[in-house]
């Protein structure tokens, strides 16, 4: 079990995560959804240690979670200029020789010998993802991994996630697109106002989608009608 205990994150005086607690099953895919500014990325940054919070908040199998247990795909990815995709993956390859660069890059059709600055947004995302996968860590955190990916790559990523679970990995994933999560997640937690409002099992995913769609319709229909008048 991966447990987050009483996590509070403040930016200046603004409380972003308020005494948040969450229990996630190991060897499963746990989704986290929430509106913009709900604190999804802050939560992931805190787990990874990019934000200074007591590490005792994070317990993995009764031990403190260490950063070395985690591979984290950030929402925005940085690459040095004048570096090829192969150069980038070679960095990771030094630590994990068993990772087959050619085979993995062929899954995503990446032109490894071209400079990364010539890649499209989706290609950069896929390259960063391959770097993360090659790290072979126990916990894999994916922040908005579907952003910029084409349909083919979305499906490939979903299959990869399922295969990773078979290899005893634990995946925490966020997305703005509910459908991309409902097809692969074993549970989805709804983050609202800095706390986990609810955690939902697959049987209730349809209801979750309907609730969110209904809520959005009520909230925006009238406003949009008025704006378009």
């Amino acid at each position: 079990m991966f447990i987050i205990n009483n996590l509070t994150v403040k930016y200046n005086k603004k409380v972003v995560l308020n005494d948040l607690s969450l229990k996630l099953d190991l060897f499963s895919i746990s989704g986290i959804i929430g509106y913009n500014g709900a604190g999804k990325t802050t939560l992931l940054n805190a787990i990874y240690g990019l934000i200074e919070v007591p590490r005792s908040c994070f317990i993995l199998n009764n031990k403190r979670l260490e950063r070395s247990d985690i591979a984290y795909l950030e929402a925005s990815n940085f690459f040095y200029s004048n570096i090829t995709g192969r150069d980038y993956l070679k960095l990771f390859h030094r630590k994990n020789r068993s990772f087959n660069i050619e085979l993995w890059s062929s899954i995503f059709n990446l032109p490894l010998d071209k400079f990364i600055e010539t890649y499209s947004t989706g290609m950069k995302k896929k390259l960063a993802l391959l770097g993360i996968l090659s790290m072979d860590k126990q916990i894999i955190i994916l922040d908005e991994p579907f952003n910029g990916l084409d349909i083919e790559s979305v499906m490939a990523l979903q299959i990869i996630c399922k295969k990773l679970i078979e290899q005893k990995k634990t995946i925490i994933i966020t997305s703005h697109i509910i459908e991309s999560l409902t097809t692969i997640c074993d549970s989805i937690s709804v983050l609202k106002d800095g706390v986990i409002e609810s955690t939902i099992a697959p049987a209730e995913f349809n209801m979750l989608t309907e609730n969110i769609t209904g809520e959005m319709n009520v909230k925006y229909s009238m406003l949009i009608d008025e704006a378009m008048r």
């Binding site: 990874y48 990019l50 984290y72 950030e74 990815n77 940085f78 960095l91 993360i132």
Partner: peptide
């Protein structure tokens, strides 16, 4: 002049 992602720094172990 550019900061790399933490993943790359941690790779060195």
């Amino acid at each position: 002049t550019e900061y790399e992602p933490l993943n790359i720094i941690l790779l060195e172990e």
